[in-house]
Design a protein around this nucleic acid. Structure first.
Length: 494
RNA sequence: UCCCCGAUAGCUCAAUAGGUAGAGCGAGCGGCUGUUAACCGCUAGGUCCUAGGUUCGAGCCCUAGUCGGGGAGCCA
């Protein structure tokens, strides 16, 4: 039997099964509405029969023979209160098993709640237990847990209030990012995850190989990658920028949005070995255009998430960090301050502040310097631009002064650097000169150099770390807690 | 990778000057209650991270390691 025919039969069987055996949809005059908890909480249709399914967060019991269940299915911060009493068939038998973490299906009437705390509630008519959760063993308790502990049970932490909110916000943020670019006609480009180009030396790379690590042959003490799957040394990408430039200089404004990998041994609250990066790349944009886009971008995606997740954001502001909303409003409502690197250095040298590291023109700014500028001195986002050429990458366009390049960093309070970008060097001779200066072999970047050989145009772009924006939005302190499954040195469980 | 701090009950922590462990929450049982961080009472629960060492005696002191946290560097 061919695959499609088998599919058709299975599908028919499935439909038939649903129609004749699923009691929620059978032989009932009232319309039984299958609702998510979020829908039920917002519903104005008091009196309707509903069917809700989810996990019990807590149960409060009365010896009068009824119980209050707090039901959550991840669709919202709030729980749906369900009242179960002796009239519900089988309640007495399964009551003991209705523990925190167990999963149930409830049907009943949606009613206005007589008590404070919730607008509506469900009076159960049927109750079905899907799966139990042994109260002695289930790790999530009816109490607060440390984020460190929850990280050890990353498979269960999405069932908590905080992580439910985090991942709903992460979803809303991803959507807002796509909306921002799509509404402006940007093309979404899928840059490769496996690459054989050394990118721009953005960081140490993870190797991708099928070679036997023990038995592999060494030629002159070196691994012979011609035997490897790709016939040469391959790695996980550290950036999609170079590929982005290919599409920007052919199809126009574009962006990448995908996972990125850095094998740096970084142990901080702001770094991951695997993180998600957004990298727009625009032809005919100079650095000013680039900064303008970056600023609108930050402002608009934050605005959209605030509008999409009001309950979750209120939770973060109340329980995680009570300055979150004020910080976000400050970013949304104010223009970003633009400061050249040279101006920033002057401010830092004359401000009278004591720093652990000295400030001098020509060296990169330390975190303490950036923090001082964005948090203490100006108290708002800052875009620094025109950095010394010797501390920046080869692809950044050299300014007329010959000393600086058209690079820009967006710094925000609390998180620090959230965007790094530049106008790209479009002049072939200057690019080759810069590659030599940075010790790179142009032959390794032949296709990148080619873009300057054929129809070269001014162009610009930037990179934004999704998790850094998440830190900003949620007020969470550790980047490991804003990605579903964090990968850091010595940690890739789950 | 470097610097600092930590690891004790399921979780969060306490244990005075080295004298072989306590609380809160959670859990179980009972009481009370249209309850909602519920409340009141009782009960159970611990190779004090691992391996060495000092000592009559180590949760506590020493050494090494593992894991976790904070900061730095690298950056997104």
């Amino acid at each position: 039997m061919c695959y499609l025919a088998r599919r058709a039969i299975q599908h028919a069987g499935f439909s038939k099964h649903r129609n004749f055996t699923d009691s929620a949809f059978q032989n009932t005059d009232e319309i039984m509405q299958r609702l998510k908890v979020a829908q039920a909480l917002k519903s104005t249709s008091v009196g309707i029969e509903v069917d809700v399914r989810g996990w019990i967060r807590t149960k409060r019991e009365s010896k009068q023979g009824f119980a209050f269940l707090e039901l959550n299915d991840g669709s919202s911060m709030g729980n749906l209160q369900v009242i179960v009493d002796g009239s519900v068939p089988g309640f007495a038998d399964i009551n003991k098993q209705l523990t925190t973490g167990s999963s149930v299906r409830v049907t009943g009437e949606l009613k206005e709640s007589p008590a404070a705390g919730q607008r509506v509630e469900v009076h159960a008519k049927t109750l079905e237990l899907y799966g139990t959760a042994d109260a002695e063993k289930f790790p999530l308790q009816k109490k607060r847990h440390s984020f460190e502990f929850l990280r050890e049970i990353a498979h269960l932490r999405p069932r908590t209030n905080t992580f439910g909110a985090i991942f709903r916000v992460r979803n809303a943020l991803s959507r807002a990012i796509h909306n921002f670019f799509q509404s402006r006609g940007f093309l979404y480009v899928h840059s490769p995850i496996i690459t054989t180009s050394d990118a721009e030396g953005a960081g140490a790379m993870f190797h991708v190989t099928t070679l036997d690590m023990v038995k592999r042959k060494l030629v002159d003490g070196q691994v012979d990658y011609t035997e490897d799957f790709f016939g040469k040394k391959a790695s996980l990408t550290v950036s999609g920028q170079l590929e982005g430039e290919i599409f920007a200089t052919s199809l126009g404004d574009c962006y990448t949005f995908g996972p990125t990998f850095r094998a740096e041994n970084s142990n901080t609250t702001r770094h991951l070995a695997e993180f998600w990066m957004i990298e727009p790349e625009m032809p005919f944009y100079d650095l000013q255009d680039n900064m303008n886009l970056a600023e609108s971008f930050i402002r608009e995606i934050l605005t959209e998430v605030l509008a999409a997740c009001p309950e979750d954001m209120a939770f973060f502001n109340e329980r995680i960090d009570n300055t979150v909303m004020a910080t976000l409003r400050n970013i949304i409502d104010n223009d970003f301050l633009r400061l050249s690197y040279t101006e920033a250095v002057e401010i830092l040298m004359t401000c009278g502040e004591k720093f652990d590291y000295p400030v001098e023109w020509g060296t990169d700014l330390q975190s303490e310097h950036e923090r001082y500028l964005t948090e203490k001195k100006f108290g708002k986002p800052i875009i620094l631009y025109d950095y010394p050429r010797q501390i920046k990458s080869f692809y950044m366009r050299v300014n007329e002064d010959g000393k600086t390049v058209r690079a820009m960093d967006v710094l925000v309070p609390r998180v620090g650097e959230i965007i790094g970008g530049s106008q790209r060097e479009e002049r072939l001779d200057v690019l080759l000169e810069r590659m030599q200066e940075c010790g790179l072999n142009p032959e390794d970047y032949w296709w990148y150099v080619d873009l300057r050989r054929y129809g070269s145009v001014p162009h610009s772009g930037f990179g934004l770390g999704l998790e850094r924006v998440m830190l900003l939005l949620t007020g969470m302190a550790n980047i490991r807690d804003v990605i579903p499954f964090p990968r850091t040195p010595k940690n890739a469980d789950f």
